[in-house]
Computed example of a mutant assay.
Amino acid sequence: MSEAWRQLGTPRAGGTLLIADHASNHVPGDIDLGIDRALLTNHIAIDIGVAEVAARLVEGGAVDGAILGGVSRLVVDCNRDEDAPGVLPIASDGHAVPGNALDDSAREARLARFFRPYHDHIAATIAAHRPAMILSLHSFTPALAAHPDRARPWHVGVLYNEDDRLASGAIAALAAEGLNVGDQLPYSGKLLNATMNRHAEANDIPYVGIEMRQDLVGDAVGQALFAERLARMCRKVALNIGA
């Protein structure tokens, strides 16, 4: 294990690997973000419900292994390119993060401590146990504080970039669960897909990005229900691999 990542289950060659960039709200004690600590339970700090749903998927056997980000997305956003401004966010949904206004040396140290070990571990895992498919798991807030008039009605979103081999199957499987499914919503994988671009598309591994609406996975009942839905989805889309 590492402070940069946490692993569940045992990744298996030919299996399903789950990757969750924003599954933790942990801020190491030696890092001061300069924010109200109450914000660490907010969507700007963590993808609510993701760690719990991931654990249920591993425990139920729907995925073989899961790699979860070890620190809050406010410490480092691992679903960004390393040179992207937002990799160390100085603001999120109207909240300033003054502790991330770092000089080049401190920025380099933050990336070397968290960002690179996280991605290095994913790369090493894929090289040693190449999965048949990757499930990228995130969650989204029903409405951004900065745009309260723009409600997000979708229960779940399916994201992808150039590789859409599993997307249509995932959308159909989730729609069959009675869910309001956003195809490239509430945002597009064409624009925000850094981890999957790097580890799935670059390795020609089929994948699907899933965004769960946070109010639906905020408690144990919702997390269990979503894990069951995603397990069924995984079984269905796996049939499309190599078809």
Rank of each mutant, 00 (worst) to 15 (best):
R213P: 08
A202W: 10
A227D: 03
G169D: 02
M196D: 13
A176I: 00
N180Y: 06
M233E: 02
A200E: 07
A194C: 13
V237S: 02
N240E: 09
A167Y: 09
L179F: 09
R235I: 00
A170C: 12
D204C: 11
F226Q: 09
A231K: 04
R165K: 10
I205E: 07
R198K: 15
A200R: 14
A238K: 08
P186I: 12
G178A: 11
A231F: 01
V221N: 03
A173E: 01
A200Y: 09
G189M: 08
G218T: 02
D183A: 12
R165T: 10
A227V: 10
R165Q: 13
E162P: 00
G182H: 08
M212C: 15
V237Q: 01
N180D: 15
A224S: 12
A194G: 13
D163T: 05
Q214C: 07
L159W: 07
L179M: 14
M233Y: 00
Y187N: 10
L159D: 02
V217P: 02
L230K: 01
D204K: 14
M233A: 09
D163Q: 10
M233P: 03
E201R: 14
G209N: 13
L192T: 14
V221L: 13
P206G: 05
N240C: 00
N180M: 14
V156L: 10
R232M: 01
C234Q: 08
G169K: 05
G209S: 05
N180W: 11
N240G: 01
P206R: 03
S168M: 08
D183Y: 08
I171R: 12
L192D: 13
D183P: 07
L166P: 06
G169N: 05
L192I: 15
R229S: 04
A194M: 13
G218W: 00
G218Q: 06
E177V: 03
S188I: 07
V156F: 04
G182Y: 07
Q223L: 01
V237E: 02
K236R: 15
A173D: 03
V156E: 01
L239F: 01
A238T: 08
M233Q: 08
K236D: 09
V156N: 02
I171M: 13
A227W: 06
H199F: 06
A170I: 11
I171H: 03
D164R: 15
